[in-house]
Computed example of a mutant assay.
Amino acid sequence: MLALQGGVREHERMLDGLGATVVRVRRPEELAGVDGLVIPGGESTVIARLAALAGLTGPIRVAIGAGMPMLGTCAGLILLADALEDAAAGQETFGGLDIVARRNAFGAQTESFETLLDVPDMGEEPVRAAFIRGPVVASLGPAASALARHDDGRIVAVEQGALLATAFHPELTGETRFHERFLGQVRAAAA
């Protein structure tokens, strides 16, 4: 769990409930000791700055290149994007997903909402998704696959190899399928 800022506890509770051992990552040596990484929602510019200050940006990029499974939610999707349509001045991402992300695509925090999404790869039951200043995938490259779209057609969940990202917060609605999929990737990579 990248534990620099954001919804760390909510993801920890979800992962604990699924039987995973959670380690908070704040330094490169902690990253070296984990098999997968969750990048939680929060403020993407703050997380990026704190990761740079902690010396984690380069090691996370190396881990992505080496195939470490990662799950990014909301700000995590932004940070896993190869490019940003509306980057804040000097904002960097870790990259890895062949997407261009647009931050705050659903408006201000006061415009947060929950909705049901069809995610065929996650089964027939709709996914309850909480959007809080959520991003969207503005452009999807050929290496990435769309997993879910909002009712208006915008892409809100993607996957590419061992990287999985959502524009919403499954950890806030009790939706376990994304975390289960991530843990399956972690187990497969460790085998």
Score class of each variant (00 low, 15 high):
residue 27 R to A: 15
residue 187 R to W: 13
residue 18 L to H: 10
residue 93 T to Q: 07
residue 81 A to W: 10
residue 112 S to C: 07
residue 125 E to M: 09
residue 15 L to A: 05
residue 113 F to W: 11
residue 10 E to A: 10
residue 108 A to R: 15
residue 139 S to D: 15
residue 181 R to Y: 11
residue 35 D to N: 06
residue 137 V to N: 07
residue 152 D to L: 10
residue 41 G to P: 00
residue 85 E to L: 14
residue 60 I to C: 05
residue 129 A to H: 01
residue 85 E to S: 08
residue 72 G to M: 09
residue 180 E to D: 13
residue 153 G to Y: 12
residue 68 M to E: 02
residue 130 A to S: 07
residue 102 R to A: 14
residue 186 V to I: 04
residue 72 G to P: 01
residue 178 F to M: 00
residue 158 V to K: 02
residue 9 R to Q: 14
residue 19 G to M: 08
residue 8 V to K: 00
residue 32 A to Q: 13
residue 133 R to V: 12
residue 70 M to Q: 00
residue 153 G to P: 07
residue 80 L to W: 04
residue 185 Q to W: 15
residue 51 A to G: 06
residue 15 L to Q: 05
residue 183 L to K: 10
residue 3 A to Q: 05
residue 72 G to N: 04
residue 189 A to V: 12
residue 176 T to F: 04
residue 120 P to Q: 01
residue 166 T to R: 07
residue 5 Q to F: 09
residue 116 L to C: 07
residue 160 Q to K: 03
residue 170 P to V: 02
residue 124 E to L: 12
residue 177 R to C: 05
residue 145 S to Q: 15
residue 76 G to H: 08
residue 19 G to A: 11
residue 84 L to T: 05
residue 21 T to G: 14
residue 125 E to I: 11
residue 140 L to H: 07
residue 137 V to H: 07
residue 117 L to P: 00
residue 46 V to T: 15
residue 35 D to Y: 06
residue 149 R to S: 08
residue 95 G to C: 13
residue 111 E to F: 14
residue 40 P to C: 03
residue 124 E to Y: 13
residue 27 R to W: 14
residue 158 V to I: 11
residue 17 G to Y: 11
residue 98 D to N: 01
residue 87 A to M: 10
residue 180 E to I: 13
residue 89 A to C: 13
residue 141 G to C: 01
residue 183 L to C: 07
residue 14 M to E: 13
residue 94 F to N: 01
residue 81 A to I: 02
residue 9 R to T: 11
residue 72 G to S: 08
residue 88 A to L: 14
residue 35 D to I: 00
residue 53 L to N: 14
residue 82 D to G: 15
residue 75 A to M: 02
residue 114 E to G: 13
residue 19 G to V: 05
residue 173 T to P: 01
residue 133 R to L: 12
residue 64 I to L: 10
residue 49 R to V: 14
residue 177 R to K: 06
residue 118 D to Y: 09
residue 56 L to Q: 04
residue 71 L to D: 00
residue 181 R to E: 10
residue 67 G to A: 05
residue 99 I to L: 11
residue 44 S to I: 12
residue 151 D to V: 15
residue 41 G to Y: 03
residue 106 F to I: 06
residue 29 E to F: 08
residue 47 I to Q: 00
residue 93 T to C: 04
residue 167 A to T: 08
residue 96 G to M: 01
residue 128 R to L: 14
residue 77 L to Y: 04
residue 17 G to K: 09
residue 124 E to I: 13
residue 147 L to I: 14
residue 54 A to P: 03
residue 36 G to C: 02
residue 176 T to H: 10
residue 161 G to N: 10
residue 187 R to A: 15
residue 82 D to I: 08
residue 188 A to I: 10
residue 180 E to S: 12
residue 169 H to K: 12
residue 16 D to F: 15
residue 183 L to S: 05
residue 169 H to S: 04
residue 64 I to R: 10
residue 184 G to Q: 11
residue 7 G to R: 01
residue 109 Q to G: 08
residue 30 E to N: 04
residue 164 L to I: 09
residue 82 D to L: 09
residue 150 H to I: 05
residue 147 L to W: 14
residue 142 P to Q: 13
residue 77 L to A: 01
residue 103 R to E: 10
residue 20 A to I: 08
